[in-house]
Amino acid sequence: MVSKLMKGLVYASSVFTFGMLGYLVIYILINGVRFLTPSLFSWQYSTSNVSMMPALMTTLMVVAGTLLIATPIGVFTGFYLVDYADRKNPVVRAVGMATDTLAGIPSIIYGLFGMLFFVIFLEFQFSLIAGILTVTIMSLPVIIRATEEALIATGMPIRQASYALGAGKLRTLFKVVLPVAMPGILSGVILATGRIVGETAALMFTLGTATNLPGSLFASGRTLSLHMYILSQEGRHVNEAYATAVVLLVFVLVINALSTLVSKRLAGGGK
């Protein structure tokens, strides 16, 4: 009886969740698609066309820059924590704890930290580099955790098999463990990408909100989310904000689909 009730509840809530998601998507599509005009994609932003093109490009730049820094650092930290570190070492425990804590901090805090440290203290001003470094710190825990989980999930047996054949630690890690863990690590990286694309609070006070494409690492810009946020906040371009939302939505859905695809292949045992 109770289990039937539970089943019903679970079923109802999943229908509700799915319904809400569907409603949201359809609502945005209906309100946005018809305002997707070519002028919204012109290379030059002006107050009359409110083009999202510079923001779209800036988003790609921020994502690329962040992944370029965060992926190697995050993946190697994950490697270190799982396969090299002595778990009782206080430094290692501190790294693990820092990772967990970083993961739970609201993004506005990252924004404030980025502003105080990169923008003001290091005098980067509102700039691409300040934005990238800030969201790098934000993405690290995601990538580290995904790497750790993927590495742990590979298990001891294949490591033992490799060691027993006379393979050293590095060879075991790169030739045996990494290929198996790769999909898990990748889906972590994709998850981090999703976070970056959707981020506003951490970027507002670091990347800034300049409307044009940043000409250098030290120039300000705005990402798509930020652009949309500002458009709807200003209230004069609500339709264009919806149109922008359509593009952002497509972006995020593509990223999610990618991540699902990758983790499906992970579940399939690689290869």
Partner: peptide
């Protein structure tokens, strides 16, 4: 060399 209790081939 060593052979283990549970077969542990690499997923290759």
């Amino acid at each position: 060399g060593m052979v283990f209790q549970q077969p542990n081939p690499f997923p290759k």
